[in-house]
Each structure stands twice: as structure tokens, then as C-alpha cells.
């Protein structure tokens, strides 16, 4: 469904963040993108929705080529690729509901969004999503009153209300504690399964990646050095991605048993 061909990104500073990357993501697949900081993970997913303009190469979503779209069409295309951010990136001074509804901005006119008169169907869907993540009672709270885990749930709602075909997820757990991290990752994966969404998840925690993703892609200095199943990540492979280190402890399958809590628990 998403096809990336020979994607290259050079920044104005001369740094090459991506070197001719090829990647194909079929419908409904959850893919974890791992690699050290500066490997180009963030650049890669930002090139897909063109928050960062690619230098060379083609990106196709379905049969639509994203790299050549004009600004109006790009806005239309962005509706079908929702993004979830590191540090949540909620607009802190808006309420939870306004943050969720901002996911519909690509669909409604400026005037409707300015007066906050979103169609009832959008509002209903927003409540349904908030209920799904256990936050519907917080709809009128301001986003900066929420805890980290709660904010990321709102971020997920904002992404899903776009009704996307693809989720671009940038370090969703980077600022969360280990328990909340697992809950958030599990939530994202469950929701992808429910809705048949494909997802690219940037994540630096190899363990979490192995635990939740069906496919793992390792990026190093802008090049793909691993592409395969989680079990295929041997110490040699990890050394290739991250460099020399004792990887045995990481490979030890830490199963999810220790964390068998209800996946949607409201962290107060």
C-alpha cells in the first residue's frame, strides 16, 4: 500500500539523512523502525507526509504519488496518513476535545473550524474514540492538565479521527515510563488491528519493538541494514544497526507476562 522508492534526503547543511531507501508496507502491517539516534528514522516518516521535503525518489500511497503533489492535493493526501508524535505535540492550550477534533481539519471548512462547529458525526466519533481510550470524561479539560500517558492517548485519538489508511508514529513512548509505554504500544497495535491500518512506528526501544511489531526494519546512517521478523534480530544484526555492545540481555525474550494488566487502564 505504501511504496518508497530510492528515497534520498539531503539537508541544506549537507548532511545526508537518507540514502536511496526502498521500503514497501502492505495493507494492515505494523512495522517497527529501529536504529540509533540520527539514523534517519524521523526524517523517513516525515518525508512520507512531506513535513520534510524529500530530495530524490518516489513515495506512493496506493497508486497516488505523494512526492509530486501540489499543496492543495497534499493536504487531501495528508488526511489519509495520520501522525502520532514524540512528546505528544498536543496544542496545550486547547481542550482535549478541540485537540481530537483538530484531526478533522482537513475535512471541514475554515469557518466551521474557526467557530468550532464541527459536524455532529465528527463529534460523535470523537466521543467514541475518547471512550475507547478511556478519556471521554476529560473532554473539556485543557490538554496541559493531562498526564503523559493520557496526552498520548489523546494524540492517538487525533490521529484516528482522520480516518487514515496509514499511521506514522514517531517515538510514541520516548517520554513515558515503561509501564505506560507498553500500554500505549499495545493500544496502538490493537487499534491498527481493529481498523486494518498499516503503521510505521519509529522506536528506539528494541524490546518493545520485538514485543509488538510483526516486522522490524533497522536503519543505520540513512540505509536499511535489517528487514525481517523480530526473532531474526541476532546480536550480530544489532551490532550492525547500533554498533558494538553486549546484546545478549536484550535478546533474552522478556515476555509480556509481568505486565498483564488491562490494556486500557486509566492512569490518573
Amino acid at each position: 500500500m505504501l511504496r518508497i522508492e530510492n528515497l534520498t534526503k539531503r539537508y541544506k547543511t549537507g548532511d545526508t539523512a537518507l540514502k536511496s531507501v526502498n521500503l514497501e508496507v502492505p495493507k494492515g502491517q505494523v512495522l517497527a523502525l529501529i536504529g540509533p539516534s540520527g539514523a534517519g528514522k524521523s526524517t523517513l516518516i516525515r518525508c512520507v507526509n512531506r513535513l520534510v521535503e524529500p530530495t530524490e525518489g518516489r513515495i506512493l500511497l496506493g497508486d497516488k504519488e505523494l512526492t509530486t503533489l501540489g499543496s492543495g492535493q497534499l493536504r487531501k493526501a495528508r488526511r489519509s496518513m495520520a501522525m502520532i508524535f514524540q512528546e505528544y505535540a498536543l496544542v496545550e492550550r486547547l481542550s482535549v476535545m478541540e485537540n481530537v477534533l483538530s484531526g478533522r481539519l482537513g475535512y471541514v471548512s475554515f469557518w466551521r473550524s474557526f467557530t468550532r462547529r464541527f459536524p455532529q458525526s465528527d463529534v460523535t466519533e470523537a466521543y467514541r474514540l475518547l471512550e475507547r481510550v478511556g478519556l471521554d470524561h476529560m473532554a473539556d479539560k485543557r490538554a496541559d492538565e493531562l498526564s503523559g500517558g493520557q496526552r498520548q492517548r489523546v494524540g492517538i485519538c487525533r490521529a484516528l479521527i482522520q480516518n487514515p489508511a496509514l499511521l506514522l508514529v514517531d517515538e510514541p513512548t520516548a517520554s513515558l515510563d515503561p509501564k505506560t509505554s507498553r500500554q500505549i504500544m499495545r493500544l496502538i497495535c490493537e487499534l491498527c488491528e481493529e481498523r486494518g491500518l498499516a503503521a510505521i512506528i519509529n522506536i528506539h526501544d528494541v524490546l518493545l519493538a520485538q514485543m509488538f511489531a510483526k516486522r522490524i526494519v533497522g536503519l543505520q546512517l540513512g540505509e536499511i541494514v535489517y528487514d525481517g521478523v523480530p526473532d531474526g534480530l541476532t546480536p550480530d544484526q544489532l551490532t550492525l544497526i547500533y554498533g558494538e555492545e553486549d546484546w545478549e540481555a536484550t535478546i533474552d525474550k522478556v515476555k509480556d507476562e509481568s505486565d498483564e494488566i488491562e490494556s486500557i487502564e486509566i492512569v490518573q
Binding site: 481542550s95 478541540e98 464541527f118 460523535t124 466521543y127 471512550e131
Partner: peptide, 11 residues
Amino acid sequence: APAQRVWKRKP
């Protein structure tokens, strides 16, 4: 019912 819940910006 949840399907009918309307929302207005909190003043």
C-alpha cells in the same frame, strides 16, 4: 445516548 452527545466549546 453516546451517539447523540453534542459538544460545544467550553467558554
